[in-house]
């Protein structure tokens, strides 16, 4: 038996013992609220302005609305982010870059489509160069309607995302 085979065998046995004895489910149940609390209160969206809604995104982090009180801190690198906030129309030139940004973000990650353009193409529904909605190539968790949505609407969408995380987070072993 080689070292690699031994590792596989031992982890399999360990896994089965944990599952059969119910320890795994117990640990998951205990750690789930902790994980969920940590995840939902430090949602870091990507600092990525595309179009009109980017101004409302900036306004939401400005003094009157102050998104940071809910833990939304905009980060400039996709490798430090949990949320991809798509705030504008997606053209055929941008589409591969957006997909790559999404792939670069570490798990767990969520996508918020903000504004009509990101949801369905919006006023450019018959354009030859605009993708008809971001959910055609990236899974979207929250849609925020509006053209552009007000900053309150954007914050509300993020609070809904927190709600979603509260109800769906997995425990330490990432199993249900």
């Amino acid at each position: 038996m080689s070292a690699k085979e031994f590792m596989e065998w031992s982890s399999q046995v360990f896994d089965e013992v944990m599952r059969a004895s119910g320890v795994k489910r117990g640990v998951d149940k205990i750690t789930r609220p902790i994980w969920s609390w940590a995840l939902r209160n430090s949602l870091f969206p990507l600092h990525f302005g595309i179009a009109c809604c980017a101004l409302e995104m900036a306004a939401a982090s400005a003094p009157r609305w102050d998104a940071e009180r809910f833990g939304f801190v905009f980060r400039s690198s996709p490798r430090q982010c949990d949320v991809l906030l798509v705030n504008g129309w997606i053209t055929s030139k941008l589409r591969p870059d957006l997909r790559r940004l999404y792939e670069q973000m570490p798990e767990p990650k969520w996508v918020v489509a903000m504004g009509e353009c990101a949801i369905s193409g919006g006023p450019w529904y018959d354009s030859y160069n605009v993708v008809q909605g971001v959910d055609t190539f990236i899974p979207v968790d929250i849609h925020i309607p509006g053209c552009p949505p007000r900053p309150e609407a954007m914050l509300d969408g993020f609070l809904k995302l927190q709600d979603k995380i509260r109800h769906s987070t997995k425990g330490t072993f990432l199993e249900d």
């Binding site: 129309w89 053209t91 030139k93 354009s127 030859y128 160069n129």
Partner: peptide, 13 residues
């Protein structure tokens, strides 16, 4: 060109 949506063409319709 990352935001080009053919504005001038759309107005013709």
């Amino acid at each position: 060109g990352y935001l080009h949506r053919g504005w001038e063409k759309l107005t013709e319709n």
